[in-house]
Design a protein around this nucleic acid. Structure first.
Lengths: 156, 156
DNA sequence: CGCTGAGAGTTGGAAAAACAAACTCTTGCC
DNA sequence: GGCAAGAGTTTGTTTTTCCAACTCTCAGCG
């Protein structure tokens, strides 16, 4: 049963350890929108410059962002998402959808995304196997580490 | 153009302001798994007890969790997700999927989820209108607040 | 040439969080 | 009576955040 003091091994936790610090996901939002310059990030996110600098270093080290020079003289840089970084977009979209649904009344959404199908993009999480929308209660978690179980029926 | 010092109005930011603090989403993970008791949370998450207590209060206040008594004498409580809380599951699933893909080599995923269709649940974010998987580059963001635009082509 | 200004960070010190370990309080059970 | 579980508090220390001001490189202007 391993060291019983360790928390549950979990990819959610691991992902959050990387991008879960304050501002990191907002950085991803901005770079995914194409706003990758330092001062843009500062303004659009509202983060302290020093902290933003730390976050950017971490995200670059993690292979989620790249730092690109867009001007040699004077040297100017811009951050862009790597492929791995772009793949965080589903996370951003589900976060945004939740906020739109629960934190705002009706139609004051600050941003609407248009899908290339022509409709407004309302993201839905589906099962890749059957294509159905994933609802709570229609799935069963199976921990694969000895000693780690789930308790009750996951109900509300 | 409003106070030009404010950051971009955004539901991602608003959602993270609520559940983006350290441990909060791990709390949601555990309560969604049915492990809603204080000491279970401490153990499974590995959070300091005082901080966990603060997070729980915030999540209850926000209407994401409820505190339920499961024993009167001695008084014992348990936290459960509300409907709004359960709707954070898509966020958790996309985070987990990202971690499984990028932070682990091949098949050491700590947890596998089975969908009621019988297959392993690999979550995919789709457009609710056309049902297609959402890919980067196949969507256009439209900020709805004057003064807030997006910059370049969102490419990597 | 000297000045102003943009962009991309650093630095320094004060204020706020996080952390760990111990402590509290209620009740059940031997 | 004594120990133990569960659900938090308390206390004192260590980290982080935060803010404002500062640096450094060049470009353009008059």
């Amino acid at each position: 049963m391993a060291a019983s003091k360790d928390p549950r091994p979990c990819s959610i936790a691991d992902t959050l350890a990387l991008v879960g610090e304050k501002y990191s996901l907002l950085v991803m939002r901005e770079v995914c929108l194409g706003n990758g310059r330092f001062d843009q990030l500062v303004r659009n996110i509202g983060a302290p410059r020093d902290i933003l600098a730390t976050r950017l270093k971490r995200l670059v080290d993690a292979g989620i962002l790249t730092k690109r020079m867009y001007s040699e003289r004077p040297q100017r840089f811009e951050y862009r998402p790597t492929t791995a970084g772009l793949e965080l977009e589903p996370v951003l979209m589900t976060l945004m959808a939740w906020g739109d649904r629960h934190l705002r009344k009706d139609d004051d959404r600050p941003m609407v995304i248009e899908h290339h199908c022509g409709n407004e993009l309302v993201p839905v999480v589906t099962c890749s196997a059957c294509g159905e929308e994933v609802r709570h209660g229609e799935k069963t978690p199976h921990p694969r580490t000895p000693g780690w179980t789930v308790s009750g029926p996951t109900a509300a």
